[in-house]
Design a binder for these strands. Structure first.
Lengths: 230, 230
DNA sequence: GGTCGTCAAGAGCAGTGCTCTCGTTTTTTG
DNA sequence: CAAAAAACGAGAGCACTGCTCTTGACGACC
């Protein structure tokens, strides 16, 4: 098909990519609020209205950036998990945690788009949920694998019955794992992103300097909460 | 001296308060990005430029709202801690955690101002740090009290030496507490705000319904991490 | 070759933060 | 008490934003 038809489509794809690239660079320097269609157009030597041929609104451009960011983060976590020996669960956990933190610190504004305060008026469309699940899916698989391998401290005390029904939406992320362990995983997960939020959003400025070292200790505590044998 | 001079100053204080009130209401409905000086002026029946007599810039208005929010949150946590028996540390911990979560859920946009992605270009001035420390100070006092009362599981294993120097900026928040316990406290603290971030920013939508119940379980796990005897 | 769809450009609308000026009113000073 | 000074609200205006609509040109298809 058709060099001729593709002639147009190719330049269109190229321009679309150029727009997102410039937008991403602008996002990195100005933040989500400072992302301006007009500025992107200016940098491309276009007039502002022309951008709307490629992205019908500012939100659509934002959505594209969000999906890209989710995929970038997810890929980083997947890779960090993949390079570890599959049965070394503490190491897999630490590796995944560091991947999240490293990516977030390297791309603070993009991270803010994913896990920061939602942009007012912006509603994430369905397209994002697939890419959005990649990082948490890694964590779920990790817990599932560890449980199956008998590497997780077994449940101790009874759970309150109200918790059972609440686990429904999470169970398929870590199949086979008992609820008690599941909630321990959620706890570690919130601790991970809680830290990263604090760090990326500047809450540790002038307080904690060597954040990587402290982070590592935090995630070791989280691993203990999960019950991953060391 | 006061009557005559205060005539003007009183109406000025009144108007200032009215501006922040309207701004806060606008913040609650539109979010930080939707806070518009012109809209505030319109609602007051003033012309937009008149607002600048009271707040030299939009950021200054934002700062006022941030300080108010920090104080509101801090006060809520302080009160929640104060109503508990002083030697019932697990209960004090849970009470403080619920206070943070309740306030955040009730005032999501104001919470986002405090703990969400920073507003681009906005730099929090020094005025905020005092109000900002109120909530975390409660937590620090709680840990300090619990340690002094012997209600915290003592340190087990040795800490890595790099961690020692990093604790400097936090020690005065919980005087007398050994570093191991201090870091456990930080871990629980990040778990708390990590959860609240996720909940307020909508990460649990369509996933966890009865968030209060799960939150309570999470904070119990965090208490176990701290080592508060149950 | 003619038709149709795609495209960039430009003007324009409503909104924003912010600045400056201009009378008016209130407070302070002489 | 009157004059000088400070504070104030109103208005116009600047540069910017997202977005819409129209116009004219170019390339692709029948």
């Amino acid at each position: 098909m058709t060099a001729s038809r593709t002639a147009r489509e190719r330049v269109r794809a190229e321009l679309t990519r150029e727009i997102t690239d410039i937008a991403r660079r602008q996002l990195a320097t100005e933040g989500a609020g400072g992302l301006s269609l007009r500025a992107v157009a200016r940098e491309m030597g276009m007039v502002s209205s022309a951008i709307y041929r490629y992205f019908p609104s500012r939100d659509d451009l934002l959505t594209a950036l969000i999906i890209d960011a989710y995929n970038a983060l997810g890929e980083a976590v997947e890779r960090a998990d993949a390079v570890c020996p599959q049965d070394d669960f503490p190491r897999r956990w630490m590796s995944a945690c560091h991947a999240v933190r490293d990516w977030a610190v390297a791309h603070p504004h993009e991270y803010a788009l994913l896990y920061g305060s939602p942009v007012p008026g912006y509603q994430a469309p369905q397209d994002t949920i697939e890419a959005r699940m990649r990082d948490v899916a890694v964590m779920g698989r990790l817990l599932s694998d560890a449980w199956r391998a008998g590497a997780i401290r077994p449940p101790a005390d009874e759970l309150s019955p109200e918790l059972e029904s609440e686990a429904a939406g999470i169970r398929d992320l870590m199949p086979g794992v008992p609820d008690d362990v599941l909630w321990r995983g959620v706890s570690a997960w919130t601790a991970l992103y809680g830290w990263v939020n604090f760090e990326v959003f500047g809450q540790f400025n002038n307080t904690i300097e060597d954040r990587r070292t402290v982070f590592e200790h935090m995630m070791r505590l989280a691993a203990a909460t999960i019950g991953i044998a060391r």
